[in-house]
Design a binder for these strands. Structure first.
Lengths: 349, 349
DNA sequence: CCCGAGCCTGACAACGTTGTCCAGGCTCTA
DNA sequence: TAGAGCCTGGACAACGTTGTCAGGCTCGGG
């Protein structure tokens, strides 16, 4: 008896790509179609002897239930969709995993798609998921107008937005306290004597980026500091742009003594810039990053909990599906300032 | 005209969770069922005027094609499954994203599932994906016996294993050169004068862990070094166990002067241990880690390219589906030693 | 004026499953 | 022993889509 199986082997009587169906199983076991269905689904009302014959036929033919047909009949797909920006980003991995775990406890599979921060691609993905009749959607939006989702939601697709709010539709939203977190982080720098503080963030059309900028501005204002335009830089978070932005604010006519960075990618790049910089510059970053504690100085961050964000959203999604949840809500999760050294450096002029 | 839509609104004539079908659209547009199908699928042979009426009805009813039914009829789902260990692990995020990108160019969606390094859960996930009739599967296996997949493969499910080989079935496999990479890393330490080198890796039942251990042993042997049992520690990669293992090898009767770590999680924990350690200990880790260049000393690693691993696997998968690929192969991707300082520290006795 | 070609259009079956409903055989009780 | 009720099994329709095929219409040529 061979230990391995080659792709080119075939089950006798089965054409390639043409799998056995319940009908085939029924014929082989000499029973009716519905009896096979009963065995496959563990429904009661089948004699042990009949069940044995059916199972034998299933085994022999290599039958596996076709869930597409099942879905068509039952109306529920037991799958949910997750649309995010980029699965390769260390922030979204844990979020996705958390959503998956919740889905798992509800017997659902997770389909994910990356929008690459492109509104059209987001819409394309979301609608493709709707066409597959996912039971629900968790969306980290790239665009800012989601009216295209309204018919789907009316048709019963449970929907929760995460990390960023939805535009022009009224749905559940789970976000971090971006404003408060940024305010805390910047205030922390101010408390350590800084007044010329730079902000480097993502494109302002991204809600989280805008909120964090607002937190920065408000914190500065609260401290009576007038912000110079050259201290703020918003745009794509590719290393080149961020590097340039950081170097400009460090070397301009009114150089900053501290930088607040708007997300993990920016933080990492700025750390690199500061590492090659003579003067000691304080740093607080939004989002925690791995090994932040081992750098010298350790990197002070405003941490948000990606896993909790995902879990909360997924739980609300399934509560919508249960029917326990009817009114859309906005849930804001707190952030946490983690001090490790870089944010406590005094201003060095 | 309202700017937002509430979940409780309903499309007139549509029951909740009961979406309009092509039949409804056909009735409203006053055309036949098939004509709607033609319009929806962009098939030729429809008068502009008829098409306009159909599109109007689609818009009015909020119709969206039900892909479940389509799949049932057509036989292809345009989706592939990816089973990996943990999406939250920074190694798998980029891999998953790479698979997704390839899928996207082929018009397919990606369903992923995390096995949590549990063979039963892996099988459960894989079979659930097969039941949904994914066109293909990319699997990072947790178990070591995959005969359960044989009927599925015979039935036409394209399959590629990544990162670790399959057990008892003959399928495409894409792996890194774990043996060679570990051999290189350990040899690098030996070249810098180390003889007492520790190895901390994952559970030996995991193929990559076993291969890396073999690379370590062979490199030591090649250098004529007899390995003490106390220098090797294999097991779960949770921080507590790794920390204990590292501390034991550093403080035992025959303390190591260098450590080779078997994967990214182990490396991170060992860096933490070494940071709190007086004596300078050299370190080379398998897998690259973010910010490794900014630590002092920089962390020397044997890097494997997760994205290339994923891309290569996905490309082979779609070539299987094209029919261009018939014979299963094993593809081994090279690793790359990146020196940053920690591996070049001399032995300090 | 008639016929055939070519173009639109729609009726119908099929995909594989599950829900409904009914038949037949059995057991149990009066 | 007859009737009621239960248990097992199966026939059939339906889910929403697409492929097949045939019918009807228009138009041009004979």
């Amino acid at each position: 008896m061979p230990e391995t199986t080659r792709r080119t082997d075939r089950i006798p009587g089965t054409r390639y790509g043409n799998r056995p169906t319940m009908k085939d199983v029924a014929a082989r076991a000499g029973v009716g179609l519905k009896t096979v269905s009963r065995v496959v689904n563990g429904e009661p009302g089948v004699t042990p002897e009949t069940e044995r014959r059916v199972r034998e036929a299933i085994e022999a033919l290599g039958f596996r239930r076709n869930d597409s047909a099942r879905v068509l009949r039952k109306g529920r797909t037991a799958s949910i969709g997750l649309v995010l920006e980029d699965l390769a980003d260390p922030f979204y991995g844990p979020l996705s995993r958390a959503v998956e775990e919740v889905a798992r406890t509800h017997g659902a599979l997770l389909i994910n798609g990356s929008s690459a921060e492109d509104a059209d691609r987001e819409q394309e993905l979301v609608l493709a998921l709707c066409a597959r009749r996912v039971d629900g959607l968790v969306v980290i939006p790239a665009g800012d107008d989601h009216r295209y989702l309204a018919p789907e939601i009316r048709a019963g697709v449970a929907t929760v937005f995460v990390d960023r709010p939805a535009g022009h539709i009224d749905v559940d939203v789970v976000v971090s306290d971006n404003f408060g977190g940024a305010h805390d982080g910047v205030s922390h720098l101010i408390a350590h004597g800084h007044r010329r503080i730079g902000f480097i963030g993502d494109m302002p059309r991204i809600h989280t980026a805008a909120e964090r900028l607002r937190g920065y501005r408000t914190a500065m204002e609260d401290a009576g500091i007038t912000v110079a335009d050259s201290w703020m830089s918003l745009g794509a978070t590719d290393p080149e742009r961020v590097r340039r932005a950081a170097e400009e604010m460090l070397s301009g006519p009114d150089p900053v003594t501290a930088i607040f960075t708007g997300n993990n990618r920016v933080t990492v790049t700025v750390i690199r810039v500061l590492a090659g910089h003579a003067r000691r510059v304080a740093l607080v970053g939004f989002d925690d990053i791995e090994l932040a504690d081992l750098l010298r100085p350790g990197v002070t961050v405003v941490a948000q909990d990606a896993a909790t964000l995902g879990r909360t959203a997924a739980e609300r999604l399934f509560r919508q599906l249960d029917g326990t949840l009817l009114t859309p809500e906005r849930i804001e999760l707190p952030t946490r300032l983690i001090t490790r050294g870089s944010g406590e450096l005094p201003p060095a002029d």
